[in-house]
């Protein structure tokens, strides 16, 4: 099970990175960044499961990292979208 999750995580990271490099449009780049982020969070979840002590579902530290990471990625996405929108407004004028 852990292997499957690990493979999923690395494919998401690969897809996100590919999109981030290849797509020229800002919106697609922002979405790719989020795919990449999801891959990293899934990897952290996998690491938490792998490092679980006996009787526990998972190591709590990576889970805490995921929560913080999601907050940071959310604010980053908001800032990037805001910039992309202002740029779009400038183009319309």
């Amino acid at each position: 099970m852990i292997t499957i999750f690990g493979i999923c995580a690395s494919s998401l990271v690969g897809l996100g990175l590919y999109g981030l490099i290849v797509h020229p449009s800002p919106l697609r780049k922002i979405l790719s960044f989020n795919v990449l982020g999801c891959g990293i969070f899934l990897l952290l979840g996998t690491i938490a499961r792998r490092g679980a002590d006996a009787g526990l579902g998972g190591d709590p530290v990576p889970q805490a990292l995921v929560i913080t990471g999601i907050v940071v990625a959310f604010s980053a996405t908001a800032l990037a979208l805001m910039l992309a929108r202002s740029l779009n407004d400038e183009d319309d004028q």
Binding site: V13, G16, L17, L20, P26, K29, I30, F33, L36, G37, G39, I40, L43, L44, I47, R50, G51, V61, P62, L65, G69, A76, L79, A80, L83
Partner: peptide, 21 residues
Amino acid sequence: YLLFALSGSALYLLGVALLYG
């Protein structure tokens, strides 16, 4: 700048995850 910085920090975070592992 933001897109470069975000890719950079995503790679950094990926490294941190592996480092913790």
